[in-house]
């Protein structure tokens, strides 16, 4: 065997090991879209909570009023559903483009590992709502979402781990400043997603 042949052989083994353990058809575009939905959602939420009054913006309602938190909750759910649907559709499209099956052992493992922190977080947040601890809901969303990204990152691009770590840090900061949940929400779910999506799009899609 020639040296070159051995190198190609070793390279093909390496790429095969990587392809069989990492799901790389995630689409950067879906990250950007999720960020945009989150920003629109946050803007609608802001309009609901803060009202205009003689050029000054002030809060004349409180989030512990069910008339306020219920629509906010609905907005968040709509943003979540839209982001998931876009993500799933674009990922399937990306996988088809690469000639890869989107439903394979790796994508299954990716989903299962992300599901545990996400479902735990979802239930935890429902409990927070029931018990009236509205102030730390934004924080809990970011922390659990970040944890699920870190958990899933071992089955996909390592970049996802960094996105997850940033979300966790933001979530912890949000817990320190309970009144400013919406700001951390905008940074985490909006800006970070758009930033991450653009990086992924240019790094892997071109």
């Amino acid at each position: 065997m020639k040296e070159n042949e051995i190198y190609t052989e070793l390279n093909s083994i390496r790429s095969l090991m990587e392809r069989s353990t990492k799901f790389i058809s995630l689409s950067g575009l879906s990250g950007i879209m999720a960020g945009v939905y989150a920003l629109i959602g946050a803007w609608i939420g802001y309009k609901m909570v803060y009202t205009d009054g003689s050029g000054m913006r002030f809060r004349d309602v409180y989030v512990n009023d069910p008339l306020v938190w219920l629509p906010l909750f609905l907005v968040a759910v709509v943003v979540l559903v839209l982001s998931l649907a876009t993500g799933i559709l674009l990922t399937i499209r990306q996988a088809r483009k690469r000639g890869e099956n989107y439903w394979n052992p790796v994508s299954k493992r990716l989903l299962v590992s992300m599901a545990f922190p996400l479902i735990t977080g979802g239930i935890f947040i429902l409990i927070l709502i029931c018990k009236g601890h509205y102030g730390i809901i934004a924080s809990a969303c970011l922390v659990f979402y970040g944890l699920s990204l870190v958990a899933g990152s071992q089955f996909t691009f390592t970049d996802v781990k960094w996105l997850g770590l940033c979300q966790i840090i933001l979530g912890l900061l949000a817990a320190l400043f309970p009144g400013y949940g919406i700001i951390f929400w905008v940074i985490g779910f909006g800006l970070l997603h758009i930033l991450y999506g653009s990086i992924m799009h240019f790094k892997y899609n071109q």
């Binding site: 052989e9 095969l16 090991m17 990587e18 392809r19 069989s20 099956n101 394979n104 052992p105």
Partner: peptide, 24 residues
Amino acid sequence: RLRLQIMSVLVANESYDFNSLKEL
């Protein structure tokens, strides 16, 4: 070559099923 490839996938993963292996 194929045997070496099968082995690389199985070494990198806990387990793999026939159809996924075929596709990969």
